[in-house]
Design a protein around this nucleic acid. Sequence first.
DNA 1: GTAATTATTTATCATAAGATAAATAAACCG
DNA 2: CGGTTTATTTATCTTATGATAAATAATTAC
Lengths: 187, 187
Amino acid sequence: MQELFTYFSKFAPLPMEGKNAIAAISQQVSIPKNKNLQQIGQTCQTIYFLVQGLARIYYLKNEIDITEDFYFENSIIVRAESLFTGRPSRKAIQVLENAELIAIDSQKFFALFNRYPEIERIFRKIIETAYVETINRIEGIQFNSAEERYQALIKTAPDTIKRVPLKYIASFLGITQVSLSRIRANQ
Amino acid sequence: MQELFTYFSKFAPLPMEGKNAIAAISQQVSIPKNKNLQQIGQTCQTIYFLVQGLARIYYLKNEIDITEDFYFENSIIVRAESLFTGRPSRKAIQVLENAELIAIDSQKFFALFNRYPEIERIFRKIIETAYVETINRIEGIQFNSAEERYQALIKTAPDTIKRVPLKYIASFLGITQVSLSRIRANQ
DNA sequence: GTAATTATTTATCATAAGATAAATAAACCG
DNA sequence: CGGTTTATTTATCTTATGATAAATAATTAC
């Protein structure tokens, strides 16, 4: 739990009482490499914090597997389109390395907001940050060539190339696996 | 102000005292068609609510004007990458029709969060909603052809085609103006 | 209302990236 | 360890979209 609170403390202070309240609704989870943490079709009712390992969110489009995003140590993983709408998610969370996570019951977590405004504030700031990242990502996709996007990834998230199979990276970059391979060959 | 509070009430209830506090830090603004409401390089310190008219956020990439997003009546306009980081924005807000807005001082607005948790809650939910829309938009860009993206826009936001000049729509869809024109001709 | 500006379309040519298939290379499993 | 599966690369061919230029249409300003 310590990693989680260290992460939270970057957004706003959280008194001990609030920490205890969160600890009471959280569980440690271990998942082996390549297993899905959440399946497509399940409604997102858990806020995950990745302590150790690597994960991705993906979905299927015409039977093709498309990676929406990657998650590394010390990050929150939620399927926002489901968590914030209450609708079943079209997306799955898959772990790409053996992983240790903290699972927080989202209903109970949201219920804490009334008693602990600090928790609501931290969560708000986490979402604000995620929102900004997503906006920036659109910009990165919009008018960059496949090669520029690959180079940008190497620069901004070199871990991705090192730790993630290329087949998952290609769709994340919005290109085919074959195209990514071609780009890599031209370097 | 009434339009703003009606909009807010969709997210969470807001007592009269909170409304008055917001009214006290807000101003009505009128801007003529095609004028910039905020310039590139300014730090975002205002939360706008569009009462009447139409606006867009745009930025320049290699001297090319790229539309990030469009905003219609009854929506909040902020340059999130600046508002949430405190850094100067690389983006401008331009009004595409004569517009009526409510301008809320963001510093003062955020300061209200401590006294009125309801306001923080409303704002959090607004950002959550915007975040989900942005995630969905990435999905729409990622593996759709230019034509599919154009068709999707006609379907999900027909107002855009009716009210916005095509030159602004093209970059929003991630394609050139010429390409958009070609797509329209093939229908 | 006419000229000047700006937006949109059309045409031509070039190219990045998709589709498909096959060859290697790497990872996994009994 | 050897065989099987899975991932990555390479090759060929096709196509959607970009770049550029020019024509037409619409809007704006005097």
